[in-house]
Amino acid sequence: MASLRDIKRKIQAVDKTKQITRAMNMVAAAKLKSAQSRMENFRPYAEKFMEVLNSVALRVNPKAHPLLAVREAKKVRVIMMTSDRGLCGAFNTNVIRAVEGFIRHRTTQQGQAVSMVAVGRKGRDYFRRKANIVDARAEVFKQFDISTAADLGESLISSFINEEYDELYIAFNEFRNIASQRPRIIRLLPIASPESGVQLEPEGRVDYTYEPSEEALIDELLPSYLRITVFRAMLETAAGENGARMVAMENATSNCEEMIESLTLKFNKARQQAITAELMDIVGGTEALAKSG
């Protein structure tokens, strides 16, 4: 039987933990709000952009731009997006596991070489020795804007043109709602061609006049494509991370409460037991005195 003081100390410790988890829960909730509205504000831009890109990229000659090149996929690169900080439940584990499966499948079954660009500290730390990381960006989620994504996009473009890799994928947690994020792996390059199943609705096809030229437009659109998709994945990760942390910390807080409750019960029982034992002593003592006296 633990002593009264031990139990009391334990209760205090758990209570402190509870205060921390509750604070983290509230911080995550506040951050989630801003991250979520940022993500939602960006969505129309990204969607409009994809419409424009599809209407141009899908019908120009693949030879018009080096970024449209389709090569035999021998070298694959994957952008891995995780959060910088932990304590957000299975958020990072889920996407890490998905990428691990992806790498295993690619290397063993298709004989491709996989390299990785790690965005976010958690993924980088995990894959440091397990994968071929060619580029890593950690501590980016505290404050980022589209220039962070533009920077990454540029280096990805030049290495694609230099044939350092043939296919590009991005792995991130898609934000579905506050409580649920789903790991997804999407191919970015080569851009889906019309034959591969992406069909535009026929009435939506308009024959545009291109200004300046089709090629010049493509030249501007393609780098933006990478920039925008990377930025979008970053926004989804930022929102998802805070959503996941909010839920995880809420669970932790209620677990603390349960624990405090059961410890308090234990404490009260122990106290009662101590009182009873003392009473027995006193009663026993007085009886002994009465007999002898």
């Binding site: 424009v52 141009v56 308009v206 024959d207 545009y208 006049t209 200004e211 300046p212 437009l217 501007e220």
Partner: peptide, 15 residues
């Protein structure tokens, strides 16, 4: 170059 668009403009994709 600068261009003005009114209702009924021909479809254009421009930078």
């Amino acid at each position: 170059g600068e261009f003005g668009v009114l209702y009924g403009h021909a479809p254009v994709l421009s930078t």
